[in-house]
Design a protein around this nucleic acid. Structure first.
Lengths: 161, 161
DNA sequence: GTGTTTTTACTCGGATACACAATGTCCGAGTCGGTACGG
DNA sequence: CCGTACCGACTCGGACATTGTGTATCCGAGTAAAAACAC
């Protein structure tokens, strides 16, 4: 069980888009170049974000993507679920129904105890992701990245818009 | 990102093995038949459990698997990690190093903030799984499964040992 | 110089190939239980 | 009858196909900006 690379990519992309001036867009091409990742495939990931209303896009020259909401209204969970889906990582196939001793008409009253625990764990994972907002990531980055690199990156980005 | 079916299978198998009398083994064939799952592939999953020292095996007639420890010493995490591996579900490829503004000799002092958060979420998931012991699952099952089905299943199992 | 039209280059979006891992299947090495045999 | 040696069948364990998901790529529809043009 591994998360897609797309998850890492779009998280970093959102961090970049967060620093974008008002009414500016950044293209997939530039985002891909900045991160050194395949442009075409990143496009597919950003589509998912667009469908989830996390970013919005514009066509034509100087088009691209920008955030659709404020950074304080976007959580890690929103972004991760946009590319990984909202379904639980554990799927219960109800193998308990194959028990040869079980009566055919017997109907379970509760969900499988095994599944319940796995789902709870899944929920803990999501809860943690939901507790972290994009704004916090930006703050952390601003603190940890050297000032000159931070500024140069910012200039690089706006030079492309 | 989905967990393997093997995870569901081995969790149920461990629950069955937990009810096994002392010094008895249950074969892959019987475990597979009881759960209605492919014997050959389940074998592969049980191998993983064996390598993780959660179960132990014996060859020959009336051979098979049994738990290697007490049910109170086995957690869901042990079982899940046996088949899914211990590595985090998120892998950081350090794409921040591809930043075109970054000096080549610059060396990061801390792990990537994005990765840190994803790893924390992963940790929450594992922490939850670690908090649930196999003994608790058995207790829950004993409570929720109708008494007659519980007994019939038990008899079915020991008739095969 | 200004407003309009045309062109043009650039964007996203979905449809199409490729690679790796999860799934499913097979056969061989090893061993325990039962059986035959000898005492 | 009892102990021993042998045989056989059953077990796990790892090696071999098949399927499905993730990865990577391509091309077309649409649009906003810029350029050309008429006034």
């Amino acid at each position: 069980m591994l998360l897609k690379n797309q998850v890492e990519w779009v998280l970093h992309c959102c961090a970049i888009l967060a620093g974008l001036p008002e009414n500016r867009y950044l293209s997939t091409k530039d985002l891909a170049e900045f991160h050194g990742i395949p442009k075409e495939y990143l496009s597919k990931a950003l589509q998912s974000l667009s469908q989830a209303s996390i970013v919005e896009s514009t066509l034509g020259p100087s088009g691209g993507y920008r955030l659709a909401k404020d950074t304080s209204e976007i959580t890690f969970l929103d972004i991760v679920e946009a590319v990984e889906g909202k379904r639980s990582t554990f799927i219960c196939t109800e193998i308990r129904k194959n028990n040869p001793c079980r009566e055919a008409e017997y109907c379970e009253s509760k969900a499988c105890p095994v599944a319940r625990i796995m789902w709870e764990a899944d929920h803990e994972w999501r809860k943690k992701l939901q507790s972290v907002h994009l704004s916090e990531l930006v703050e952390t980055l601003a603190k940890e990245i050297p000032a000159d690199l931070w500024e140069k990156s910012f200039e690089w980005v706006i030079s492309r818009t």
